[in-house]
């Protein structure tokens, strides 16, 4: 227990250092607006990927409706700040609670499904949320919710991202998290061991949805606009791609996937003809050579390096 806390504190310390460095570089103008924007996108994508990984990777429930929960957070957050003039923190909490609640309500019936059926149900759900929003004139309908102030700063983003990652990590290492993993490994065996599978599935789904809501609120308060076209199933697939690319069941994998894909997309912005080709090619190559994703279900750690440099038979480490 003690070493665990110590390690947590160490990583938190490392995060602070990283934060300080990047914040300083932004303040002194070394990082321009374009890369600031992409750092924000990376952060938002990390939150989305890690939260989806909790549902898809750790609990083994194949959900592809994450963009819908993101939309709920984005719109509710915007309503709270623009129409009700409440502070940003309320918008984030409100977005998270609303998305989480929706996840809970929807999770109860749909999580009784499994495999393909669940995937289709969640896909439909994401579209239902989007189309509902599309037809609410109060939030701008088809033209989108405009005039949202830019409240999302690097500070907000960074600490919410760190919070998400630590929350999910600690959740997985808790009793509840292990119950979730057992459902992924073998649902019948888990049930036989006395685990209330529906309860844990819904719990993971709710938490995942709530964090998607946080990401949504951050998103709409950075891009000045919440537009239904930003939350189509294509975005759900984007998030899913990040999770699968990094490795289902690996938090560091999700982080790496989110960073890599956002980065590729930004770096190729000047070559629109090649962007989708390179993007698709890299995915195909990865799926051929590493079908389990970059990190598999392992976590990236310094141990990998010691194993690699130590050489020998245990060279199965997943690091790069």
């Amino acid at each position: 227990m003690k070493t665990k806390t110590k390690n947590d504190l160490l990583s938190l310390g490392a995060c602070f250092v990283v934060y300080a460095i990047i914040q300083a570089l932004i303040t002194f103008g070394v990082i321009g607006q374009f890369w600031q924007l992409n750092i924000v996108l990376i952060g938002i994508n990390i939150i989305l990927a890690v939260s989806l990984n909790l549902i898809n990777g750790f609990t083994g429930q194949f959900s592809i409706g994450h963009a819908g929960f993101m939309a709920v957070g984005a719109y509710l957050g915007a309503v709270l700040t623009v129409k009700m003039h409440l502070p940003f923190i309320v918008a984030i909490l409100g977005g998270a609670l609303a998305a989480g609640f929706l996840g809970f309500v929807i999770g109860l019936p749909t999580l009784r499904l499994s495999g393909d059926y669940l995937a289709i149900a969640t896909l439909g759900l994401g579209e239902i949320i989007r189309i509902t929003i599309l037809n609410i004139p109060y939030v701008g309908g088809a033209s989108g919710f405009m005039g949202i102030p830019r409240y999302t700063t690097f500070t907000w983003l960074f600490f919410l991202t760190v919070f998400t990652v630590f929350f999910v990590k600690n959740f997985i290492n808790s009793t509840h998290g292990r119950a979730c993993i057992s459902i992924r490994e073998n649902e019948i065996a888990a049930e036989a061991m006395g685990i209330d599978t529906t309860r844990y599935k819904v719990l993971a789904f709710t938490i995942g949805a709530a964090f998607a809501g946080v990401a949504g609120a951050l998103f709409s308060h950075y891009f000045y606009i919440a537009h239904p076209a930003s939350f189509t199933f294509m975005r759900s697939f984007d998030i899913l791609t990040m999770v699968v690319l990094g490795g289902l069941g690996s938090i560091t994998g999700s982080i790496a996937g989110a960073v890599l894909l956002t980065f590729i997309s930004a770096a190729l912005a000047s070559y629109p003809e090649w962007r989708m080709v390179i993007y698709s090619l890299s995915l195909i190559i990865l799926m051929i050579y590493r079908p389990q994703g970059l990190f598999g279900n392992k976590e990236f750690s310094l141990k990998m390096f010691s194993r690699l440099t130590g050489g020998g038979k245990r060279g199965t480490a997943q690091g790069k």
Partner: peptide, 26 residues
Amino acid sequence: MFKKGLGLALGACLLTGLFAGCGGAG
């Protein structure tokens, strides 16, 4: 060790964006 790695990975990832930022400016 796992947690430390997590933090470091996070840092490393964000730093990637940073270097790119330096290269692209100006």
